[in-house]
Amino acid sequence: MLELHFSIENESELVNAFRLRDQKKLMLPQGLPYPFSVRSYFTWQDPNGIYTYLVFKMPNWDMPRGVTLKRTTTNGEPTGGICNWCHAYGSSDEIGMLSLNLNADTSVGYQICQDLRCIEKIEEASARAGKSPEKPIDQLYQRMARLFENMKQAKAD
């Protein structure tokens, strides 16, 4: 199984993992102990729950990369959904549309876990089923990597 581990040495390294357009919306979590180690990926939400931040690093990447995802609110009745990354099922409070601005003209949406606890959900579901989480976790990493590749391929502002 592909085990992903990386470390963030200081606040500057964490901020610089994000694109300039995302740094403008960045609200770092309070009290992070630098340096810190990350297993798989690091995520947190802003205090208002509007933005979810993701820092991720594949083994072939020089540095970790970060992205700011914006929660899309719905005014309708709560519904159920399936996360496109980990295939967990949950209510619209748990699974929903998180959008990403690729540039000034283009944004994309992902129907995923609002809190990005995908790896934990995969591990829990695999343990309940008595199966190895290896393949679903590798697929999760590939889906996350594609998000960052899409960002890289989009024309800059």
Rank of each mutant, 00 (worst) to 15 (best):
F56K: 01
L26K: 09
M27V: 14
Y41W: 09
W44S: 03
S7L: 01
M97T: 11
F148T: 14
D138T: 08
M58Y: 11
I95Q: 01
K25C: 07
S37H: 12
G76F: 02
R146G: 10
S126Q: 08
Q139G: 08
R65N: 12
E77W: 07
A104S: 15
Q153C: 04
M151C: 04
G90K: 12
Q30R: 01
E11H: 15
E3V: 06
D105Y: 10
P29Y: 00
Q114E: 12
P29Q: 01
S12H: 08
N103H: 00
P29S: 00
P47C: 15
Q111S: 15
R117F: 12
I8F: 15
D105E: 10
T106I: 10
E94W: 13
A129T: 07
F148I: 03
N60H: 14
S107C: 04
S91M: 04
A129K: 05
E3Q: 14
D46W: 06
P29T: 01
Y53V: 09
Q30N: 15
D62Q: 14
C83Q: 00
V108P: 14
D62R: 12
E11C: 02
I119C: 03
I95N: 05
Y89V: 10
L98K: 00
D46R: 05
N103V: 00
M151H: 02
Q139W: 15
Q45C: 14
P33F: 01
N103M: 01
R19K: 05
G81D: 01
S92P: 08
E120K: 08
Q111E: 09
D93R: 04
E11D: 01
C113M: 01
W85M: 03
C83V: 10
R19F: 08
K155F: 09
W61C: 00
G31A: 10
P78Y: 00
L2E: 09
N75K: 11
T79I: 15
K131S: 13
D115A: 13
P35E: 09
S7Q: 13
V55L: 02
E3C: 04
Q114D: 13
Q111G: 10
R146I: 14
P33Q: 06
A154F: 10
M27S: 15
W85Q: 02
S92V: 06
R71D: 03
N150G: 06
S91P: 13
N75S: 15
Y141C: 00
A127N: 07
